[in-house]
Design a protein around this nucleic acid. Structure first.
Lengths: 368, 368
DNA sequence: TTGAAAGCGATACCAC
DNA sequence: GTGGTATCGCTTTCAA
């Protein structure tokens, strides 16, 4: 608990001035400081376990190397934490640190969170949301370089750059996957339309149908909610007491928990997956999708990549040295950043979802 | 993006010196500064939207008002984020901010994370883990006040104070709950014994049996893993092809996902819950337990409370003003801190779990 | 009642 | 090749 060594301590021990210490430790010693002195300085630094005080550095450099992240509920959400993990990995690899303030869905705290972060002189700001949604951007975010992840500026145009998943394409590719397996009667169990995620996924589903020259049966798209029980009851509505020939042969769900509910309903009804009905999730939720019985085919949200892409773009804006040192001693942990990640002002970067085929989808039952 | 106003700007605008500004804005104006000047200073500050630069403050006060949190995988875990949320709420209410470094289970990054945080002059450190486990504490944590949440120091004694859930009691109370419903043949589906959580819960289960004067049937306790599929296969082993009279009437699971697997298996076998078999989870996992069909009875882990208790104890150690201002503009969000939360050096604070009775447990079948 | 000056720790410029 | 000094923004002591 004893106070840390300062540059002055090192200078004293090495018998030189503070300036010399600074020069040498920052690699600008050659040509400025005698080699012998350099050696002594390095030794002294090592002996005292010296490392510069980042607070003083921040004050001096007018650069805190801190990125503020405000989130609506990501910290306690079951899996969106990956957005932050992806962002943090990139920040760390540039010698930055992230400070996250979670408002726990209380929008009245947005402004305060941003101000707190700004007071602490963050070099940049990122806003992260649990589900894709339009965001009323706190005005003060404009004071430093900022970016949005999983949400987009609700103002008509201009606005802040955003990194979001390509939900339309995700919905389309999910539908195309089961179509390729021969399914034609495909239901879509969506969340609510409070967030644009469900409507966009449904839009993709429609695109797949029109792309295949098929008509969408409107009775097959149900907006039920986002939880297991909603999936269960939605599936019951679709399947219970319905003669086999009139059942949908595949059920697409807007998330994995809905799919869990659907599987539950199928088991309850004595239906086998995927022989009787194929079920697809969305999100590839950790410890859910892969571990289900049967393991769920799903459309993985590119959460980590989104966080990484957003942070990469933000740091570029902040002017961080791209090859900044990783001051955590760990592996670089370079999360993949999709091409074109660097978003221009007001641009929306779409990151594609990834189809994950497991055991819950299979060929359509014969004769259907 | 224009630079923020400094105390000097305010002083100039108000026509006084920087010192006066400082005095007034920190409430020590009366008796030192003319009332008229005070007024002008306040107005100037408001006009310029002045707020002190926290970096400069930190340097000056030798206090960053930042608590570093290092976590093993909490950021991306499905629900343990609540530990951090609880900790952060308390920190925030004291005018502190938390910065979390997640090592993503790479222990070799522990040291680096601690050092990074220390370089940034954090006032205190907290280590948070996803599951209860012994922790090899990074030596440098000793340099500032530190505390452990959901983990405990693996060194024989002394060590760092820790806040952990009372797993033994949780296991006992879960068993007692179903016993009170008349169950006697009770199975326990546990995770692995790699973490002390499962063994401790099993220990509690045994306590309940001996407390009731009953013998534990060792065939009824299965260490299967932590995921849905493990629960499914464990339940199949217990129930499939077994005549009703020889089936356990209740199955206790070491977490909610295991319970989901058990329910899946029951449905597959045409068994009704809770009429044929009662099922209990553990954790009260958000968006899982409550939304299951049927809704899961479970033992809620006091994650938020643990985080809050740990932070409360830590801040006391750091010497934070207990009534510190909430600089986030939001509600105080005072998470409940259990009595006795303030842990002395090396002490382990146990926080009790909370029984949540829903629809998956019911009276034992007649005649059993 | 007020303002000048000394740090807090590090860097960079500029005389020597 | 070296070390003194101003600076970042703020608080606090001390002298006027």
């Amino acid at each position: 608990m004893n106070r840390k060594a300062t540059a002055l301590d090192v200078a004293k021990l090495a018998g030189v001035s503070r300036s010399a210490v600074s020069l040498v430790l920052n690699g600008r010693g050659d040509g400025n400081v005698a080699l012998e002195s350099q050696q002594r300085i390095r030794e002294a630094a090592a002996a005292l376990n010296y490392s510069p005080n980042k607070i003083a550095l921040s004050l001096r450099n007018q650069q805190s190397r801190v990125i503020g992240i405000v989130s609506d509920q990501v910290v306690t959400s079951p899996f969106d934490g990956n957005i932050i993990a992806g962002a943090d990995a990139v920040a760390r690899s540039h010698g930055f640190v992230t400070v996250v303030m979670d408002t726990e869905l209380d929008e009245s705290r947005d402004e305060g969170a941003v101000d707190t972060l700004l007071d602490r002189q963050v070099d940049g700001l990122m806003y992260v949301t649990v589900g894709l949604r339009p965001l009323h951007v706190p005005p003060n975010m404009a004071r430093v370089p900022s970016i949005l992840a999983n949400c987009f500026d609700d103002r008509p145009d201009a606005g802040l750059p955003a990194v979001i998943p390509d939900e339309v394409r995700g919905g389309r590719e999910a539908a195309e996957h089961v179509m390729a397996l021969g399914h034609r009667d495909i239901a879509f169990l969506a969340g609510d339309s409070l967030t644009p995620a469900a409507p966009r996924r449904i839009e993709g589903y429609r695109e797949a149908f029109s792309g295949a020259g098929l008509e969408v049966n409107e009775d097959r798209v149900l907006q039920v909610g986002w939880d297991i029980d909603a999936g269960f009851h939605g599936a019951m509505k679709l399947l219970d007491g319905v003669e086999p020939a009139r059942r949908p042969t595949a059920i697409l769900c807007a998330n994995d928990r809905l799919a869990v509910g659907v599987v539950l309903a199928c088991y309850r009804l004595g239906l086998t997956i995927p022989q009787d009905v194929s079920v697809m999730g969305y999100d590839d939720e950790f410890r859910i999708a892969k571990a289900m019985v049967p393991a769920l085919s799903t459309m993985a949200l590119p959460l980590r990549e989104m966080g990484a892409a957003a942070m990469t773009a933000l740091l570029a804006e902040v002017g961080a040295t791209p090859a900044g040192k990783n001051d955590d001693g760990g592996p670089a942990a370079g999360a993949a950043t999709p091409a074109g990640a660097a978003a221009g002002a007001g641009a929306e970067t779409m990151v594609p979802c990834r189809l994950v085929v497991r055991d819950s989808t299979g060929p359509a039952p014969a004769g259907r």
